[in-house]
């Protein structure tokens, strides 16, 4: 088994600014050789560590789907590492370790309707999930796909071209919303994610919900899902604790007896209700 602390070498192929605040960038990473890409197997919901020599490492959810050639990460500039990452130019060489963690529960989701609820820049691993589910070879294995995705304003929504295309796709039902319309022509719905979810009112019958968002969105989304009839065992969330190793050794990311890195990052709401709220 290869040394899990050694990052794989990857090249930053493309950097895209995602939002009006310009503090969210998407990094498309490519492996030097095709073999390395082929052996990097991951499932949506997993994460990797990005590494810049002399700066350090930090974990991020993988935003691309396994079928895509590049490995995509969308990163907000908040601290030392993310600032260094944002300062890179295309062509830079960085490191990547992973993929670590579990994934969204695709086996359990088979044959079921899927409801995806997301706010702000947490949409990354859910983008990966949507692309994965929409794959023509896979789409028929899952039921109806409903997505509610919102941000403060239109300029803060991620992957704008792609989600615009999804709005008219027959393969999913996507409702985009913003906290305030402020005159922008798109999207059309004003409202907070939990309220819009309530209007969209997807059926909980034979359905699974995947929820990612800021704490305040999560807090108000649970009562709506409960009202719609979603049981805690059918609601899944992804946690983001501070971590150093990604493989359950360094001890940083535990929530009770579970390690977010190796037992998560995806947990059912039912599991979370039994754990301390240390996340």
């Amino acid at each position: 088994m290869p040394n899990p602390y050694l990052p794989l070498s990857v090249k930053v192929e493309r950097i895209s600014i995602e939002n009006d605040a310009r503090d969210l960038k998407t990094f498309d990473l490519a492996f030097g050789d095709a073999g390395a890409r082929k052996s990097f197997h991951f499932t949506p919901g997993q994460f990797g560590f990005l590494s810049i020599l002399g700066v350090g490492e930090a974990p991020f959810g993988i935003a691309s789907a396994p079928s895509e050639e590049t490995i995509k990460y969308t990163v907000k500039r908040v601290g030392t590492f993310t600032t260094a990452l944002h300062e890179l130019e295309p062509g830079a060489s960085i490191g990547m370790r992973g993929p670590w963690g579990n994934s969204y529960p695709f086996e359990l989701m088979k044959g079921k309707d899927i409801v995806i609820v997301s706010g702000g820049f947490s949409f990354t691993t859910l983008r990966s999930t949507i692309v994965y589910l929409l794959d023509p070879s896979r789409r028929s294995q899952f039921g109806k796909l409903t997505v509610v995705y919102g941000a403060r304003s239109a300029g803060e929504l991620l992957y704008k071209d792609e989600i615009k295309a999804w709005e008219s796709s027959p393969d999913l039902s996507l409702r985009l919303c913003v906290d305030r319309l402020d005159g922008a022509p798109w999207p059309e719905t004003e409202g907070l994610v939990p309220n819009v979810l309530k209007q969209v009112a997807p059926s909980a019958a034979n359905a699974v919900a995947l929820v990612c968002g800021p704490p305040v969105m999560i807090r108000f989304t649970h009562p709506v899902l409960e009202l719609l009839g979603f049981k805690p065992e059918n609601v899944f969330l992804s946690l983001e604790n501070r971590m150093k190793c990604g493989i359950g050794k360094c001890g940083h990311c535990n929530v009770g007896p579970k390690y977010v890195c190796k037992d998560g990052p995806v947990f059912s709401y039912k599991e979370l209700l039994r754990l301390p709220t240390e996340y």
Binding site: C212, R219, L272, P276, T277
Partner: peptide, 13 residues
């Protein structure tokens, strides 16, 4: 009493 029986999931990515 079950450990951490909180009804409020505060923060999840």
């Amino acid at each position: 009493k079950e450990r951490g029986t909180k009804k409020d999931v505060r923060h999840a990515g």
